[in-house]
Computed example of a mutant assay.
Amino acid sequence: MSACRAPRRLATCRRATVLATGAAVAALSLSACGSGGTSGGSADTKFVQGKGGVDTVPKGDRQDAPQLSGKTLEDKPLDVADYKGKIVVLNVWGSWCAPCRAEAPNLAKVAKDTKAKGVQFIGINTRDSNRAPALRFEKAFKVDYPSLYDPIGKLMLRFPKGSLNPQAIPSTIVLDRNGKIAARALTPLSEDSVRKMLNPLIAEK
């Protein structure tokens, strides 16, 4: 009889099964449409936990964002590094995610309002098995900015340990003008919350 059949070992087997599925699948399945954790790793993480689920990093302690590139939902190449010099808002979302639908109009509105101030929004669409539902989502909520298509969550796993990494769907990460990770939210955002994340970075010199 295998170990997985013993009732008293059921919890252990379940943990082993989760580990065996691989880091990418486990990370996405456990965090989908959830609020996630508080940090990405080590005890020397230097971010500041703020109110409303928004964490920030002092300017001198920020880490470089990972290399994030691929094809968009429209099958066009996109590299986040090309937007260095702008403030970049990265929103991890899925068309199947109710909190993503709730925040989408807020993100779309702020994206339009802040474009002239040097802010670029970029989505990271994940766990949509094909592009069609995601494209319908963008049309329904008038999302004009591009989204990288990342169906199995590879881009989410590129963020460095101890950084403000995405741990939930939705997650929103803000990069400063130097391409460094400056702020993160692991909850759906109101229009006001997005502006509060961005205003200090827009004001930075």
Rank of each mutant, 00 (worst) to 15 (best):
S69G: 05
G70F: 03
K71A: 13
D75C: 01
D75K: 00
K76I: 07
L78Q: 09
D79V: 11
D79C: 09
A81R: 15
D82P: 07
D82R: 12
G85I: 10
G85Y: 11
K86F: 05
I87L: 11
V88A: 09
V88K: 10
L90N: 05
N91K: 06
G94V: 06
G94T: 08
S95E: 04
C97W: 06
C100L: 05
R101K: 14
E103C: 09
A104I: 13
N106I: 03
N106M: 03
N106F: 04
A108R: 03
A108N: 04
A108F: 09
K109H: 14
A111D: 11
K112R: 15
K115T: 01
K115H: 02
A116Q: 08
V119H: 08
V119Y: 08
Q120D: 03
I124W: 08
I124P: 01
N125R: 09
D128V: 14
S129T: 15
A132S: 12
P133T: 10
L135F: 02
L135V: 05
R136A: 15
F137N: 11
E138P: 03
K139R: 15
F141A: 07
F141K: 01
P146N: 12
L148F: 07
Y149H: 11
Y149Q: 01
D150V: 12
G153I: 05
K154H: 09
L157K: 11
F159Q: 00
F159K: 00
